[in-house]
């Protein structure tokens, strides 16, 4: 067999494939260019309330996990669905708490009154399982990641997240002031959170990280001395200290690992026609300062802690 012919045939095959890829990219760019060129007014027009592809016509179906936690969702559950009941009662339909408020701000911008907003409870895992979704938008402190975006759509980020370390009096890390002090600690985090990655990438502890299904188990483990501290997003760390722990202490906030700023975004069905509209609305709320004022209202000074070095 003539090797050079084979090789040149492969080369031709590669060229053909390359050409196809280049053509596809050109077409893709052309398509993008077309939409980018259209004025912003037309974006708004295509997001008109009656043209939106919704689960239930005329209603915006929002979703989060039950129970929902402060400071993301706040307020009692009187008169609303019993599904949101629990020790730390937070009915999202109250529109209170940062995510609750952001959800209603987005709904209002899309043209929905509070009465046209419907809430359903969705488990975190169910939110990204393949198949039809029961919601239009899901928000539960979900970090935007490229790998995750292969399974679902994300809106623009509505919150810049940072990770904090919380512990209790008497823990070996109660007096920790630096990342080095945390190296020997047994730390815990909730499954599916970026806190776990933060522990492994920033603190790099000597002992293996304990991973819990929910923050409730992490708290039980902290109280039981199974772990020395919990890593979670900073507002949740403050909530744990103030409402869920006896003798809770905020050790500090973890520095960025040098990568892109971690953001929470709305989760939508992959390829949802709503994604662009929701992102546009979130971008608008960020630009006009609404998100900043909601942040001050619901999270206030609890969005940051001393950064550990």
């Amino acid at each position: 067999m003539d090797m050079s012919t084979t090789r040149s045939r492969i080369a031709i095959g590669q060229t053909t494939r390359m050409a196809v890829v280049v053509m596809a990219m050109a077409m893709f760019l052309a398509a993008c260019g077309g939409s980018a060129a259209s004025p912003s007014a037309s974006v708004d027009a295509s997001c008109a309330k009656d043209t939106l592809a919704l689960k239930t016509a005329g209603k915006l179906t929002l979703s989060t996990s039950a129970p929902a936690y402060s400071p993301w969702f706040q307020g009692g559950n009187e008169g609303s669905a019993a599904i949101w009941a629990g020790d730390y009662v937070s009915d999202p339909a109250k529109g209170q708490g940062y995510e609750g408020a952001v959800a209603y701000a987005v709904a209002a911008k899309l043209g929905f009154t509070a009465a046209e907003v419907v809430w359903v409870a969705t488990d975190f895992t169910v939110s990204y399982a393949p198949g039809a979704k029961s919601f239009d938008l899901y928000l539960a402190q979900v970090s935007i990641k490229a790998e995750r975006a292969e399974a679902v759509d994300f809106s623009s980020g509505y919150y810049d997240a940072a990770q904090g370390v919380v512990t209790i009096e008497g823990s070996p890390i109660a007096g920790a002031t630096s990342i080095a002090d945390l190296k020997t600690a047994k730390l815990g985090a909730m499954i599916g959170t970026t806190s776990l990655a933060a522990i492994n990438n920033i603190i790099k502890p000597d002992t293996e990280v304990a991973v819990f299904d929910t923050n409730d188990e992490a708290l039980a483990a902290l109280n039981g001395g199974l772990i020395d501290g919990i890593v979670t997003d900073v507002p949740t760390a403050f909530y744990m200290r103030d409402a869920q722990l006896t003798g809770g202490i905020i050790v500090g906030q973890l520095p960025s690992d040098g990568g892109a700023q971690e953001q929470f975004g709305f989760v939508l069905e992959k390829g949802s026609a709503l994604t662009a509209c929701v992102s546009a609305v979130v971008d608008g709320l960020k630009a006009d300062g609404t998100l900043a004022s909601l942040l001050t209202e619901w999270i206030a000074d609890k969005a940051s802690a001393p950064v550990l070095k």
Binding site: E147, R148, E150, I191, G192
Partner: peptide, 13 residues
């Protein structure tokens, strides 16, 4: 648990 960690990190089962 290791599988679940990887599952929720990438939203892939």
């Amino acid at each position: 648990k290791q599988a679940q960690i990887l599952k929720s990190a990438n939203f892939n089962f």
